[in-house]
Design a protein around this nucleic acid. Structure first.
Lengths: 232, 232
DNA sequence: CGCACTGTTGAGGTATGTCAAGCTTCGTGG
DNA sequence: CCACGAAGCTTGACATACCTCAACAGTGCG
């Protein structure tokens, strides 16, 4: 997205010096954990979620390679979100002082971090509007498109057929629905020929109609980064 | 929250050189506006919202003095949110290059901005979980507590009685409910003696029970800022 | 004084949840 | 390689939280 200077490249590489592997299903951080490490996701997919006291779960976000994990450790003593590997993953843990040094030495990278957090903010507010004001069908459609598009960022060859990698219960926890109702919405989308399903695969058969049904906005395009400070 | 050096103070003051007044109800930025200005809110209350194509509205956030408005102008050519004054307000507009300079010259302030955006992220994810997984009554209770607590940050003397400054329709747009149902939930909270209402005033009669009903978490306490880089 | 906005209340409808049963898929260990 | 169990999926019947529409009452502003 932004060409880096060798110095910037080196500073980012220092964040990724260590490396840790996670099995599918493993928990990287649990809500209320102390520890305060942050991570860069290198490979795989991670979800972040919270548990409410009635035992229900809300999935907040899905993370893909390049994303910063546990950014809230910048601020809070206790983790605010649980991070769980959805696939086998590798992550690079790093400590807060390293980030402080990066901000000091490389102001343009600090700005890029702010840019990423604004993109994330936009994605969160989209989901907020979806949960507050759209139908179950729209929310399910939105999550299908979003996952496909994020997978496509890492693999531009990806077409309309992809492996979702989520159970219907997980889709429900992300959209604020029950697994049973997610199932019905998927079937309905299938009956309307907007999607098709094969074991493990999701196929978007009418992306135009699906995006319309979902109110989908792509937050990873239409960026304006001309204001970034000069690299150091 | 953090004591500033004179240099930092001066840099922040430069963001606030200009000043603009807004009447209650006025729109500061409309969704899809170009322009790319950002603002610091100096006085008053502002809400940010989005409109969906069926005409419904989702209120994303309420902003109070000191908050950064339109941070998404950092990234997007078109505004992603509408900003509306809930009370008479004064704001200080500033341009992106000024922020770029601030990041370069004052790394610790850059870090503080990141801290604020993490706090905001936490608040957004709390609301996401509330919309996805809690009852109408809990969501209404949560918004009452949140507004009171944010007002109290600016006026520590504020007790359990305060002026909400929102219509029931606005509460509904923030919580993903209809105005009619908000009304019923307020009455129910009143019948259970959790709140009382006088014209224009809201009184929290049993904050303990209300917080419990609302799953409320205060995101403005429990911060850990020891990692911030040294001031320049 | 009148009009627009906000709040209140009731009756009835609908989207989504709950519970329960049976089915498929898949990994594991015998 | 098969058998088994666990996890996920599918479907139906029924329950309910929240919505819609509609009418009216209070409040404040021009």
């Amino acid at each position: 997205m932004v060409p880096l200077t060798p110095g910037e490249r080196a500073a980012l590489d220092r964040l990724e010096e260590r490396e840790r592997s996670l099995r599918r299903g493993a928990t990287l951080v649990r809500e209320k954990d102390h520890g305060g490490e942050m991570f860069v996701l290198r490979k795989g997919t991670v979800m972040s979620s919270v548990l409410l006291d009635d035992g229900s779960r809300q999935i907040l976000r899905f993370m893909f390679p390049g994303d910063l994990l546990a950014g809230s450790a910048l601020v809070y003593r206790e983790a605010t979100e649980t991070l769980t590997a959805l696939t086998d993953c590798t992550v690079s843990p790093f400590e807060r002082p390293l980030l402080a040094k990066l901000i000091t030495d490389h102001p343009r990278l600090a700005a890029v971090i702010m840019v990423y957090s604004q993109i994330e903010r936009a994605a969160l507010t989209d989901r907020l509007a979806a949960l507050g004001r759209t139908s179950a069908k729209a929310r399910v459609a939105a999550i299908l498109i979003e996952i496909r598009n994020r997978q496509r960022m890492m693999n531009p060859a990806l077409g309309s057929s992809f492996v979702l990698g989520l159970t219907q219960e997980e889709i429900g926890d992300a959209t604020g629905l029950t697994a049973v109702h997610v199932n019905r919405m998927l079937r309905q989308l299938e009956e309307e020929h907007l999607i098709a399903r094969e074991t493990g695969r999701m196929i978007l058969k009418d992306e135009r109609a699906l995006s319309r049904a979902a109110n989908y906005v792509d937050r990873y395009t239409g960026l304006d980064l001309a204001w970034l400070p000069d690299p150091r």
